[in-house]
Every structure is written in C-alpha cells, then in structure tokens.
Design a protein around this nucleic acid. Structure first.
Lengths: 142, 142
DNA sequence: GACAGCTTGTTAACATGTTAAATATCAAGC
DNA sequence: GCTTGATATTTAACATGTTAACAAGCTGTC
C-alpha cells in the first residue's frame, strides 16, 4: 500500500497548514479566526448576502455559518436583516466597524501573501493554482 | 484584494474535500473515520509506535490522538502497552482484528485511488505531488 | 538519594465541524 | 383560505480540533 507521504489528502492537509500558519498568527493578533476572515472577505466582495449563499461561498456548512455570524454580530462586525419579500431569509452585511477592521487587516494579509509567493516562487505558485483548480473541477464532475 | 477563488488556503481546502469525498464514503461504510484510518495506515507501516510519534506522523495533535486511540482500543482494533524501560510511554500496535480490517479496506482504498488518478490524469497527479511537497518544505523552512 | 527540571501522556474546557431534527415562512393546488 | 409540500434558517446533539493545565515518570546534579 501507498506509504503515508504519498497520500494525496495528507499532502494537501500539510500544505494547507504550512500556508495557513502565517495567516493564522496574523488573524489572531486581530482577534479573528480563519472562518470569520473568510466571511468578511466574501462580504467585502458582495454585500449583503443571504446566509446560505454566504456559507456556500466560504465553504462552511450552514450551521457553522449561523454560529460564526452570530459571533461576528455580537462584536458588531456584521449586521443582519430580514427582507420583507421573504422573511425566511437572513441577509448579512458588514458594518462600518467591520469594514474598518477589514481595511486594517487587508494590507497585512497581502504582505503575508507576498511573502508566501516569494518563498514558493512565482512559477510554482501559478502552477499550483492551476493544478488545484483543474483537480477540484475534475473530481467534482466538471 | 485578491478574490476568494484565488485564495490559496481555500483552493487547498476545496481540493482536499474533492479528493476526500470518495474516501470518506468508503471509510464510513467500514465504520471508520478519516483519522482512524490514518492511524491504522501509520501502524501498518511501523508497529508498535509511541502515541506521540504516531500523532506526529498522522498529523493529529496529541490530545486528539489520545482520544482516537482510545476509541480504536475500545473496538479492539489497536492495543496499548507500556514498556518497562520507560513507563511514561504508551506503545500502540494493531491487533489481529485491526490487521484484518485493514486488509479488508486496503484494496477498496487503492481502487478509489486509481479512480482519482484516472480522473485527474497521471501527469497532473505527479505534478501535484511534487508541487505540494516543494511548497510545504519551502514554507516549513526547508 | 533527594530535588529540580524535562519528557510523555492525559484530562479539561472550549471552539469548530457535522448530521438530523425542528421552526418558520413561502408557494401551489384545491 | 386551507392544506400540503418546498425552502431557509436555526437548534440540538455529538464528533473532532485546539489550548492550557495536570499527572506521572525519567534524568542529571548536588
């Protein structure tokens, strides 16, 4: 049987941890975890967003999204509203405070990204993106 | 700021989920989760193994390893012993039952692996392994 | 051989992931 | 307009990850 080091899931997990280490340190310094930052980024791109759609985009299950959004709400980083047209839905948006926090963190995040690109090398970085995209699409029946 | 689809941690996470989907279905059919299977594989390679060394190899933190090993022990898939020379240590080994379960699952796992290789293509598969290894090593200060 | 400090593993407390069931609203058909 | 079924979200219960503290055994030094 294939030895451990040649297990694709393990290789992906280790690579992700290696990449995340710097980011996590950065986020924690600003009182955020990984999921909260993903949600903030998604909302920065499109805002407001239904919580279900938000969960899909940030690749978190809906119950986790509910819980994480509740935490962000308590810290007044996001706000929630129910549209009149459909009272089942929950629309999430960044507050002003949330946007400020994003603006504060974003440059640090970009810097860390640049550092990673330098360490890995631009060619491998591009190659890796391409490969991951192709592999994911292929496996998801693309 | 970089859009979501170009976030390396997200790309790695999605790729891993895509790869794992088939495996998880397979493992669950045999009553195992991902971590339990990783532990069994590691023990199949080297057996017995101290629980700390085991945790390192399968990329699980020690408290989780303690818990997972306890579960495997309860199902008599692994056994535990304390060497006389150092009573702090806990040596974990597969039981006969554990080896049987492994032998039952391994061919299915290999088959799934073959399926994935076919879907992805051998070239991309090799390329991906190489890249992930290089990236991980580079980021971990290699 | 007693003490201090190190190592190994566990426990405890809390955070997050996951699954199933519950709640609330909407929409369609009668 | 009532009922049935579908949809969106939440809650609940449990599994796993994570951090810090704890317990027990070892090791070297005096």
């Amino acid at each position: 049987m294939r030895p451990f080091d040649q297990s694709l899931p393990m290789a992906l997990l280790r690579a992700r941890e290696a990449v995340m280490r710097g980011f996590r340190r950065l986020l924690r310094a600003h009182g955020l975890n990984e999921q909260e930052w993903r949600i903030m980024r998604a909302l920065m791109e499109t805002d407001p967003l239904e919580i279900g759609e938000l969960a899909t985009r940030v690749f978190i299950l809906k119950p986790s999204a509910t819980r994480t959004v509740k935490n962000l709400e308590a810290r007044e980083i996001v706000s929630r509203s129910r549209p009149r047209s459909d009272q089942r839905r929950a629309l999430i948006a960044l507050t002003l405070r949330g946007r400020d926090l994003f603006d504060e963190l974003a440059p640090h995040s970009e810097l860390e990204y640049t550092r990673i690109s330098r360490v890995i090398g631009a060619d491998d970085m591009d190659e890796l993106y391409g490969l991951l995209g192709r592999v994911t699409d292929a496996l998801n029946g693309g």
